[in-house]
């Protein structure tokens, strides 16, 4: 039996004495596309960061491909697009090519050298995301949307099996958002990449993702959008808003 790319068991995370995530259980199977939604402060980003081992857990555990993050050593199977684009140093002297290449080389053995096929791969990823012409540009000179695509390219360039995306569309215009969603749909369907997508836009998630994880410090709902649509519990919780989220009724 194939090991689930991500398994979260009874996970609780505390911050400054308060519980920000409580007893979270969920699992991402191979090829899943899970939209993680919830109100501000509901712990969406915290869940992603804890799953990646970037935050300590108070109790419970996270398994990445069957291993806890601290002992996990197959990071080449994981891609991550962080949220904090606004904190990027606009004076940082890195070209787009250098940043995307860093995503390709990170999990390599020493000495890490860039060869011709690496350069081709970086160029192909940039082309796929429509930013091939920006390869030599400095990251700080790009628009927010272009920077976001560069960081997505960095997360995708090594061909991850599990992709974590933390509010990746905030800086994109509506046209680019659609392009972004269709790129993800393509890699999810064609490469069977498992995607966990933290979003402020439950409606868009209903349109593109296969499963929904609704968080509010605890798991309010986890399942397919059809299950969400027919859930009596969710009808009571959301009222008419339930079907704006599930996006199953045109």
């Amino acid at each position: 039996m194939q090991v689930a790319p991500l398994r979260v068991e009874n996970l609780s995370v505390t911050y400054q004495g308060g519980e920000v995530l409580s007893c979270i259980n969920c699992e991402a199977l191979c090829g899943d596309y899970i939209g993680i939604v919830g109100p501000n402060g509901s712990g969406k980003t915290t869940l992603l960061r804890a799953a990646l081992g970037l935050l300590p857990v108070a109790s419970g555990r996270v398994l990445l491909f069957g291993q806890e993050p601290a002992s996990f050593n197959e990071w080449g199977r994981v891609g991550y697009l962080p949220q904090r684009l606004s904190q990027m140093d606009s004076r940082f002297p890195a070209s787009v090519e250098e940043i995307v290449t860093s995503g390709l080389l990170a999990a390599r053995a020493y000495p890490k050298r860039v060869n011709a096929s690496d350069r081709d791969r970086v160029a192909a990823t940039l082309e796929e995301l429509g930013i091939g012409s920006l390869a030599r540009c400095m990251i700080g000179r790009l628009s927010g949307g272009q920077q976001q695509r560069v960081l997505l390219a960095r997360a995708l360039v090594h061909g991850p099996e599990l992709l974590f995306l933390d509010e990746p569309i905030t800086a994109l215009d509506p046209v680019m958002r659609e392009t972004f969603y269709s790129i993800l749909e393509k890699i999810n369907k064609e490469r069977k990449t498992t995607i966990l997508f933290v979003s402020h836009d439950p409606g868009a998630m209903g349109k593109y993702a296969g499963k929904l994880l609704y968080l509010d410090k605890k798991v309010m709902f986890f399942g397919t959008f059809d299950e969400f649509c027919h859930s009596g519990d969710m009808a009571r919780h959301f009222g008419a808003g339930q079907h704006l989220i599930c996006h199953r009724h045109g």
Binding site: G53, W75, T101
Partner: peptide, 22 residues
């Protein structure tokens, strides 16, 4: 020279470098 790519990745984005296996 040996750690150039790791130093670069960690300087640009420490969290990302960590979850990339650095």
């Amino acid at each position: 020279n040996l750690f150039y790519h790791d130093l670069f990745a960690a300087t640009f984005d420490q969290d990302h470098a960590q979850v990339s296996g650095i």
